[in-house]
Simulated assay, not measured.
Amino acid sequence: MAEVKLLGVRGSPFVTRVVIALKLKGIEYEFLEENLGNKSELLLKYNPIHKTVPVLVHNEKPILESLIIVEYIDEVFNGNSILPKEPYQRALARFWSKFIDDKIVSSVKKAVFTLDEVEREKGIEESLEALQFLEDDLKTKFFGGDEIGFLDIAALIIAYWVPIFQEVTGLQIFTSEKFPKLYNWSQELINHPIIKETLPPREPLLAFFKARIEGLSASK
């Protein structure tokens, strides 16, 4: 069997994307925990440009960036398809996954981790606008239809991490009242057996982000 390693941090939503894809395909792999405060020689070797995780190493060849890694896993390994088979649907899944990272993740980070009040309000406004586009696009149980797929994996950060950010900060960005379809989707997703067993424990994440935000406030 081909040798597969994953360099990552267990609480990362981007690393979790890759772990889910590996589990959906039933691929055995070795997880190498990274300390981003003291990056390993292996990480610097395989990702010298960005020096970030996740990094998938397949037969000693590194693949970088979470969504690119998920696509690679889908193309190289046998099993149920993660991306849609039909070309137009594949293109849409790629578009919306990029939209999530470029628009939703960036605006939520601005809302949560920015100390400037004006910038924070701008982040909240941008988050709400971007989430509404996604709400309007959701037509089925999952974005992938009746089964989870590429876009569900990309959007997991909304379902699991954004509510944690909200609990830490008191912000109300992603709620069942504002986005009922997305909220129902999020509950189905985080309770899916493979997702549920893969998600990092909630309490350590709460403590981590609470400490991070308190640290930002203390340095103000």
Rank of each mutant, 00 (worst) to 15 (best):
E75S: 14
V76Q: 13
N78D: 15
N78F: 12
G79Y: 09
G79Q: 11
N80Y: 06
N80G: 14
S81P: 03
S81Q: 12
I82M: 06
L83K: 03
K85C: 04
P87I: 09
P87W: 11
A91E: 02
L92R: 06
L92W: 02
L92I: 06
A93D: 04
A93I: 00
A93K: 04
A93N: 01
R94S: 05
R94D: 05
F95G: 00
K98R: 15
K98Q: 14
F99W: 01
I100R: 06
I100C: 10
D102F: 09
K103P: 01
K103V: 01
I104G: 07
I104V: 12
I104W: 10
I104H: 11
V105C: 14
V105Y: 12
V105Q: 12
S107D: 08
S107I: 02
S107A: 12
V112M: 10
F113D: 03
F113N: 08
T114D: 15
T114H: 13
L115D: 02
L115F: 10
E117Y: 01
E119A: 13
K122V: 08
G123D: 12
I124M: 11
I124L: 11
I124W: 04
I124D: 02
E125I: 02
E125T: 10
S127Y: 15
L128N: 14
A130Q: 07
Q132C: 01
E135L: 04
D136Q: 07
D136H: 00
D136K: 00
D137C: 05
D137H: 13
K139M: 03
T140P: 00
K141F: 00
K141R: 11
F142K: 00
F142L: 00
F143W: 03
G144V: 01
G144T: 03
D146Y: 04
D146H: 05
D146R: 08
E147K: 13
I148S: 03
G149S: 07
G149W: 02
G149A: 07
F150Y: 14
D152T: 07
I153Q: 03
I153P: 05
I153C: 06
A154I: 02
A155Q: 07
L156H: 09
I157G: 06
I157H: 11
Y160P: 02
W161L: 14
P163I: 06
I164W: 06
F165T: 03
G170R: 00
L171E: 02
L171V: 00
Q172S: 15
Q172E: 15
Q172C: 12
Q172L: 13
Q172G: 07
Q172H: 12
T175M: 12
T175K: 08
S176H: 14
E177Y: 05
K178A: 15
F179M: 11
F179G: 09
P180K: 06
K181C: 03
K181P: 03
K181G: 03
L182P: 06
N184R: 14
S186F: 08
S186K: 06
E188I: 05
E188F: 13
I190P: 02
P193K: 12
P193R: 13
P193D: 14
I195D: 05
K196T: 08
K196L: 12
K196S: 12
K196I: 11
L199H: 05
P201G: 04
P201Q: 11
P201W: 13
R202Q: 12
R202F: 04
E203W: 08
P204S: 08
L205F: 12
L205Q: 13
